[in-house]
Design a protein around this nucleic acid. Structure first.
Lengths: 329, 329
DNA sequence: ATATTTTTCGGAACCGGTTCCAATTATATT
DNA sequence: AATATAATTGGAACCGGTTCCGAAAAATAT
């Protein structure tokens, strides 16, 4: 590997001169030409480790994502990236592939790389996480989950679930199924379920049943088919759009029609929700905007400006046909 | 920031001893305890720049992706990550957000970070790219695009398009539209179109019309509505599943049914293709498997083992209902 | 022509680790 | 007890850059 010393030797100057040349300091025109030539010939590329060692680099923000193939994650990442670029920051992405151990490892790895801050798109927060939060001397921002003492940017899971469920109730439904996920996921698993239950409990004659499945479409579909066979809710509130898709597929497989036979609603407003037919009524979370918020909040943290402990992203209920037809029950 | 020298000073030993402790060298049990205590108290975290400066780190592979919110990209990344982990390599993701300039910058940035190799999920290869390829003294693997002199792992765009189009022709269609993308995209834009045209040209009575749109669903939908109004192909071959979704949406909007009124086929086998109704006939590209291939190929390059210049990933045509009903034309 | 200012450049120290080597200490062997 | 061997430790050099400082050279002023 060719180093700055090689360049210096080959062009007959001191390496401090080469460094100055590279960083736009004052260099005589003939030495400039000599150095230029050598650099071109050797296709020298500076070693950023060596650079960062002396000059630090407070312009990199690390992000840790639980998975790469998720609409929410990737949109949020885009938002973060977009916002960081406007401030001349760079984004470093580390994937933990749904593995909590890897997630924690990634936090430490970013700390070793001396990033200016860490944005964690979190799922479950375990004891190792909190230990890391305590130990790491880096600003950390949690997105999508809340944890006491840590800056958090959360989706309004409970309130949006409440609103969505109210909408379903207003359509006349009284036998409603909630198809959620593991309660280890505080936001999606717990928050959305609580909002749902709260809304249902305000209606004396309403009946709620809660089920649990995973995040995959197929898993949800199988679960839904099972549920339909033993129980016949008139409406489904699903913890994610993917789960809603599974329910709709199950309905179709068993010869039922949406929304004629039952209504379905989800969370996320994935791109497909507006394209499919019937369109899926869902809670839109503006992930990209959330990413931008996360990034600018992190900028503030890095610069020592005051930031609220808990922030909320916006949401909006998008009504589409999957909830359209208020039928007689 | 607390450094190894601080730890050494505080525990009354030389920093070489601390270093040895950290790396599992021989350290006496009492010094071990002293150092341990200090490290815990100061929550010391080593600086990985300093570490990498001396010990290099040939165990990081950089990847550059054109966008984060793409099914193909994210699945491929997952495959790369999965495979690299089995070999104790790490993956560094840089996003270029569809910006060729950023893409090239990212290549140089990875080179400065002295990664062991670079996997580039490419779209368009311009002159700056080729300059970078020449200059960078790092193994580079192109995925999804081919460029002479560069190791490439490509999807069999042309052949799969030919096969898919043959299938459409076999169903009896003779007036077929191809809805593709910009020809600056060598693989998706050119390869798939050529395969399509080749298949059509083998049928004397077949009629092909090629159109162009972008990668977005909505853009494709608008384009398709426009086309339907002036022309009425009986089948559509779309360069991506997203484009196919746009066409199906357009058909629906204008009161046509798929596959009754026209057949539609795509490329990619996005998750939704099997969930929606009618299911979308498409070319499955096994992106995750491609990612794994890319990673193990990169391992070989890094280790100086021989690798073929051009490799092909697998593909398979998945027949679903969108092409199901051979109707009388 | 000399004095002064400005520009250009080399030397050395430093960033925070790792590693080699020699010195010291502890343990085993005879 | 003396010696051989092994384990532990500190010092110094090094990785590849940046930066500070002072000397030399060049440009400008007097």
């Amino acid at each position: 590997m060719v180093t700055i010393s090689d360049i210096a030797r080959l062009s007959g100057v001191a390496k401090s001169t080469v460094s100055r040349y590279l960083n736009g300091g004052s260099v005589g025109s003939d030495t400039r030409i000599k150095i230029e030539k050598i650099i071109r010939e050797t296709s020298y590329i500076p070693n950023s480790f060596a650079q960062s060692l002396k000059t630090k680099r407070p312009n990199i923000i690390g992000t840790v994502v639980p998975r790469l193939d998720s609409y929410a994650s990737s949109r949020t990442l885009m938002g973060i990236d977009e916002q960081l670029r406007t401030q001349d920051y760079e984004m470093l992405i580390l994937n933990s592939n749904r593995d909590p151990r890897r997630e924690v490892e990634n936090l430490y790895s970013l700390a070793r790389q001396k990033v200016a801050g860490i944005i964690l798109l979190a799922t479950e927060i375990g004891p190792e996480h909190t230990a890391a939060f305590r130990e790491l001397q880096v600003p950390i921002l949690l997105v999508g989950q809340q944890y006491s003492g840590i800056y958090s940017l959360i989706h309004d899971d409970e309130r949006s679930a409440y609103d969505l469920c109210r909408l379903v109730l207003n359509k006349g439904h009284r036998r409603i199924a909630f198809l959620g996920v593991s309660e280890r996921d505080q936001a999606v698993g717990v928050g959305r379920k609580i909002g749902f239950i709260k809304a249902v409990s305000e209606y004396k004659d309403a009946n709620a049943i809660c089920y649990e499945t995973g995040f995959g479409i197929e898993e949800a579909q199988i679960k839904a088919e099972e549920i339909i066979r033993q129980n016949r809710p008139t409406a489904w509130v699903c913890a994610t759009d993917n789960i809603a898709l599974g329910v709709m597929k199950a309905a179709h497989n068993l010869g039922f029609r949406v929304p004629d036979d039952f209504s379905v609603a989800g969370f996320g407003d994935y791109e497909i929700a507006g394209i499919m037919h019937p369109g899926l009524t869902t809670v839109k979370f503006f992930y990209q905007e959330t990413g931008r918020m996360a990034a600018s909040c992190m900028m503030k943290l890095v610069n020592g400006q005051p930031v609220e402990r808990v922030m909320h992203s916006q949401y909006k209920i998008i009504e589409r046909e999957s909830l359209d037809i208020p039928f007689v029950l």
